[in-house]
């Protein structure tokens, strides 16, 4: 799974580079607009190790932000699945907050929290949190009638059991949504770094854009792509393992 994802990304990246070179050739553009392969190689040699550290830094923040968002979305979705006013309020709030573009909210976060780790974490978590929350609410609010009816009629239904049943019956959906939101966590971290932080690959991207240096941007994009692919592959692997554990329980009860 892992090599396949990497190969796929490398093929897409090389195709995009090829497309850029074709445009450069056809329109006789200078290296300032589109870097030549030699320029790209020299730039990669010069910045690769530094950008590698930056990309790892970004990935670490994205993973922590993603985990925070998953935990928070799970808790809030469990409360939000209720049909009472609290559940309704959470749903409306989630929809409304998701509508705000992060570029409008980010400056407020940076003013309040500064340009350190906390702001990056919060923005990364925010970007993947709301899509996760809406999906989780949808999943946890949907009764699994066939199974739940039995426990309700026998008076054994508890909220913990209800959550477990719904999570078990929808585990494939939950895993897909969680893995899908990983890219959002990465995007959120990069956006945060781009706007206000002073570390990470997003910060390096911003400096490269200030210098109109597309070669640096392309090197950064390569690393972002590789690390996003790695993270997705890892999540998918965890998902397969979890599904295996849930479908083939080693013992005990649900």
């Amino acid at each position: 799974m892992l090599p396949k994802r990497i190969y796929q990304f490398v093929i897409i990246y090389l195709a995009a580079l090829g497309g850029l070179q074709a445009i450069k050739l056809v329109f006789a553009l200078s290296d300032y607009v589109i870097p030549s392969p030699a320029d790209l190689w020299q730039t990669a040699e010069a910045v690769f190790s530094r950008y590698l550290g930056d990309a790892l830094n970004t990935l670490a923040v994205a993973i922590v932000g993603h985990l925070l968002a998953i935990v928070l979305a799970t808790v809030v979705a469990i409360i939000g699945r209720l049909t009472n006013w609290a559940g309704a309020l959470i749903k409306v709030a989630a929809y409304n907050l998701q509508a705000y573009p992060i570029v409008a909210v980010a400056p407020i976060i940076f003013i309040l929290l500064g340009d350190g780790l906390a702001s990056r974490l919060l923005i990364a978590a925010m970007i993947c949190y709301f899509p996760l929350l809406l999906s989780f609410i949808g999943i946890f609010a949907e009764p699994v009638v066939d199974i739940e009816h039995f426990y309700t009629m026998t008076g054994r239904m508890r909220w913990q059991l209800e959550v477990k049943i719904r999570a078990f019956e929808n585990n494939a959906k939950l895993i897909t949504v969680t893995a899908g939101s990983a890219t959002l966590a990465m995007v959120g971290t990069i956006v945060a770094e781009f706007f206000g932080a002073n570390a990470g690959i997003g910060y390096s991207l911003r400096i490269a854009l200030y210098q109109s240096d597309l070669a640096k941007v392309l090197v950064a994009l390569f690393l972002i792509g590789i690390f996003t692919s790695l993270y997705l592959a890892l999540l998918e692997r965890i998902g397969v393992w979890l599904q295996h554990k849930l479908v083939l329980p080693t013992g005990g009860t649900l």
Binding site: S30, D31, Y32, V33, P35, D39, Q211, S212, D213
Partner: peptide
């Protein structure tokens, strides 16, 4: 910077 990269 642009001149350094051959921009006309």
């Amino acid at each position: 910077r642009a001149l350094a990269k051959g921009s006309p």
